[in-house]
Design a protein around this nucleic acid. Structure first.
Lengths: 117, 117
DNA sequence: ATTATACGCAACCCAGAGGTTGCGGATTGG
DNA sequence: CCAATCCGCAACCTCTGGGTTGCGTATAAT
């Protein structure tokens, strides 16, 4: 999993990690111990998750005295969204090509990737 | 990984799986054998990946004669994007609150989650 | 009918993820 | 100084994920 996009998606695949991301999106910073208090796992487990998030570039750590505070760096989230959007665009243009090919009627632009219908 | 969102992110975490998704976004359908020809893994490996994608709701299979054709169903991608967008929104509103709190100046809306700077 | 193609199922292998416990080392507080 | 926190490192365990090989079976082609 050396590619950046893969690391981001992998980071978001775990529920505990998603909880951490959401938590850090709301409060400004948090420590592993604080987060562990709200999760069904130990502090070390949370520390590992934070390491994974840091590896994906989603989080930055800063030591303050005896505690290590983590902060969200949501940049890579945009990259992940871009990837999904790219797939949606290819899907849409393929649909447009198909539609245009089937009937010469006015081929209006389709929106983004739509929900399951 | 019983939660739907987790399954989608987990599906997108693997490079081969992402390749399959992109491939299916362009061509209309494909078989496991066809995809395996473009990937450094065996047909069975691709079949497992397709099963995972199907489990995440990203793909549907249809048997046609002796071959099984797979088609992309991009609905769940929107759900994944929504999750990311939700985090971005919370992040933005927190920033807005902070900015409004620090200085009474006109608090213009921030954009979406921005790229790494 | 026989051969070739495409699939599914099952067993198996191995590395890594997620988790725990057990320390030892800083830092803060009395 | 001594006790209480907070952290990081390391060992360990278990289970799943990605991958392979092997085989049986159904459909298609000759």
């Amino acid at each position: 999993m050396t590619d950046p996009t893969g690391r981001v998606f992998d980071a978001l695949a775990d529920p505990n990690r998603r909880y951490v991301v959401q938590a850090l999106a709301q409060r400004e910073t948090a420590t592993a111990t604080e987060l562990a208090a709200e999760l069904p796992v130990t502090r070390q487990a949370v520390a590992k998750h934070l390491a994974a998030l840091n590896d994906a570039g989603l989080v930055e750590s800063r030591r303050e005295g005896r505690e290590t505070r983590y902060e969200l760096t949501p940049g890579p989230l945009a990259a992940a969204m871009d990837w999904i959007a790219g797939v949606g665009a290819e899907w849409d243009s393929r649909l447009a090509r198909l539609r245009r090919h089937l009937s010469g009627g006015s081929p209006r632009r389709a929106g983004g990737a739509r929900r399951r219908g």
